[in-house]
Simulated scan of single mutants.
Amino acid sequence: MADTSPRTGSPASQDTDLIIIGGGPAGCAAARMAAGVGMRSVLVEPDTLCRNLYRIGALNNALGGHTSGPALADAITAELKSTELCRLELGRRVVELRAEDDHVAVTLETGTLLTAPYAVVATGVGPLQPRDVSWITAPSGLTLSPLWQANTDDAEGRTLLILGGDRPIGTFLRAHPTTDTRLLVAYPEADAYKIEEIRDDPRVTLLPVEHLILAPSEGGAVTADAVSQHGARHMVTADAAYLSIGNAPAVPPGDFVRGADGYCPPTDQHSRVIVAGDLRSARFQRIMTALGSGSEAALHAYYAARDLPISN
């Protein structure tokens, strides 16, 4: 459990009722819910609101009739910017969060110090790189883009090597239904259950592997020595390589308790730090669960600030 012992330095008056770190679906939902119960909030986001949503071409699990990430992102952003009780700090990065006995102190890269009784942290995740998984050997320092960042021009008439079988592959295929591309999906046994939704797409060739040795070539092309789960080896060539091997939690510096997997279990955190969205666990990385957990986090802060019981 996080250290909840008393500390000194509590400000005489605090800047807001709630500090929200992260401007994705979970953070935006927290700000909207906070305003709905009369709480002032400051939302800190180093980029634009719902940045990653704008890169998702197709949705199949969102309410409101939104079938693309940009449409949902526009709706969320418009609602949040009209929320008078929420102050936006866009283009600002958190460099430290400290949880004191009676407040939370958040320092921005500009040196600004924000204080509030509670903080909702919804900084999400970032893509794992080849160096982060044991089944891929790649040149030192190699960094690849996740598949969901690829557009039609990146894929049209090209063969793409996809590292990992994570679910964004299905999203990519739905977003580009008429794109003439070939996806070579190399995945370990642990990802076998994830590839069912793409198995029957004629543009996909599945490559179950035990190990993959990646060798980039000129012009972005790649070759790979693929070792199958039965020990057979063969060479794979592609015009480019993209990632679909999962994500790693993007935890800001400060008073957080991280599990063995790097995520921040909500029940292990300081009582004034409420974790929401994808930062909680790898199991719940869906847009709808992020929206729900952000709303719940704001309500948690509302009830806690008033010493009201929080039902499980």
Score class of each variant (00 low, 15 high):
residue 1 M to N: 06
residue 5 S to H: 06
residue 10 S to V: 08
residue 12 A to G: 03
residue 13 S to M: 11
residue 21 I to Q: 01
residue 23 G to K: 04
residue 26 A to Y: 10
residue 28 C to E: 10
residue 30 A to W: 02
residue 37 V to P: 00
residue 45 E to N: 11
residue 47 D to L: 11
residue 48 T to W: 14
residue 49 L to Y: 08
residue 49 L to C: 10
residue 50 C to A: 15
residue 53 L to D: 03
residue 57 G to H: 12
residue 61 N to K: 03
residue 67 T to F: 08
residue 70 P to H: 07
residue 72 L to I: 13
residue 74 D to L: 06
residue 76 I to W: 11
residue 83 T to N: 08
residue 85 L to W: 00
residue 86 C to R: 00
residue 97 L to C: 12
residue 102 D to V: 11
residue 104 V to Y: 06
residue 107 T to Q: 15
residue 108 L to G: 13
residue 112 T to V: 14
residue 114 L to V: 13
residue 117 P to M: 07
residue 118 Y to Q: 09
residue 119 A to C: 10
residue 119 A to W: 08
residue 124 G to Q: 07
residue 129 Q to N: 02
residue 134 S to L: 09
residue 134 S to T: 14
residue 138 A to D: 01
residue 139 P to S: 06
residue 144 L to D: 01
residue 145 S to N: 09
residue 147 L to G: 02
residue 149 Q to R: 05
residue 156 E to T: 13
residue 159 T to V: 12
residue 161 L to N: 02
residue 162 I to A: 01
residue 164 G to W: 03
residue 165 G to S: 10
residue 168 P to F: 05
residue 169 I to V: 15
residue 170 G to H: 11
residue 170 G to D: 11
residue 171 T to D: 02
residue 171 T to S: 04
residue 178 T to S: 10
residue 181 T to S: 12
residue 183 L to G: 04
residue 185 V to S: 05
residue 186 A to E: 04
residue 188 P to C: 12
residue 191 D to Q: 13
residue 191 D to E: 09
residue 200 D to S: 13
residue 205 T to K: 15
residue 216 P to S: 08
residue 216 P to E: 04
residue 217 S to D: 06
residue 221 A to D: 05
residue 221 A to E: 12
residue 225 D to L: 09
residue 226 A to K: 08
residue 227 V to N: 04
residue 230 H to T: 15
residue 230 H to V: 14
residue 234 H to Y: 13
residue 234 H to S: 15
residue 236 V to S: 06
residue 238 A to V: 13
residue 238 A to K: 11
residue 239 D to W: 06
residue 240 A to C: 05
residue 240 A to E: 11
residue 242 Y to I: 01
residue 245 I to A: 12
residue 245 I to M: 15
residue 248 A to P: 09
residue 256 F to R: 07
residue 261 D to W: 09
residue 263 Y to I: 01
residue 263 Y to P: 00
residue 264 C to F: 10
residue 264 C to G: 06
residue 266 P to N: 03
residue 268 D to W: 13
residue 275 V to P: 14
residue 276 A to T: 06
residue 280 R to W: 06
residue 287 I to D: 01
residue 288 M to L: 04
residue 289 T to R: 01
residue 297 A to Q: 05
residue 298 A to S: 08
residue 299 L to F: 02
residue 303 Y to V: 00
residue 305 A to W: 00
residue 309 P to D: 12
